[in-house]
Design a protein around this nucleic acid. Sequence first.
DNA 1: ACTAAGTTGATTAAGCCAGTCAACAATACT
DNA 2: AGTATTGTTGACTGGCTTAATCAACTTAGT
Lengths: 147, 147
Amino acid sequence: MKLSTRTRYGTRALLELALHEGEGPVFLKDIARRQQISLPYLEHLVTPLISAGIIRSTKGPKGGVTLARKPEEIKLSEITQLLEGSVTPVECIEHPEVCSRSELCVTREVWGKLKDAMDGVLESTTLQDLVERQKKKGHPESSMYYI
Amino acid sequence: MKLSTRTRYGTRALLELALHEGEGPVFLKDIARRQQISLPYLEHLVTPLISAGIIRSTKGPKGGVTLARKPEEIKLSEITQLLEGSVTPVECIEHPEVCSRSELCVTREVWGKLKDAMDGVLESTTLQDLVERQKKKGHPESSMYYI
DNA sequence: ACTAAGTTGATTAAGCCAGTCAACAATACT
DNA sequence: AGTATTGTTGACTGGCTTAATCAACTTAGT
């Protein structure tokens, strides 16, 4: 019952972008350094985020990536859906046909409640919420990541 | 973000026992057949459940396993904790020391909210709740599993 | 042109985990 | 006592997923 590193890293990368909203493109290299993600790995995370229209990229010198929408318009549910595949605790919730017992299975109902509880949190949290939390905590990138 | 089959199968096995509460020991073989779990695999699931005091076993002919407590006293949180290891979406919630950023990380806070939401469901659901749901649906084992 | 970026794909390495097999231990029944 | 039946334990395997890297390619600015 763990989130994939895809989702964890991806969320951190997007938070990083949200923190620099309005400052123009950010280098993948900088995101990687500040959020402690390996650059080659980050490159792969970026691809689906672009196709999904969450970020925009600019090639060449002075290039980088930017949020394609405002932080308050990007819900965590969208990010997890994209990077995690889905946050379903069991396959049969979304695809009842994978198990012949789906119809009558009561454990399935409970796992459904579990999913609903998670969705509630993910639907109600946006990147903007993360930014505000971060501001309350102070900006770690200024004091910590540039040694 | 999937539950392990350990947890899924284990929960089904316990439900099966709860449904036969008060009828004496149930053969592992029967649980396996009715809940469609491979017998050798079920055997391994049973071990931790016994050590945790959730079920009791009787060896020999007419042996089998029984719930050690009443269904309403067995919470899902206990089962998942035992079989899943834990339902934490990220390691750093329970062990902040695994990541140097734990202190200042706001994504960690959100994953914490996610865990709280899940815990809410798991803490408030008992085997008895599953039994009642099953009764409302009818008893599938009588009509379906004995072909 | 040249350089600095992002993009894409092939590939690898490792860890996890479902699942099986086989030997063992205990109990009830005859 | 002996035997069949059942749970117990541990060793082992095979496959899947996924984090991660490398290398070649494309695009854009100077």
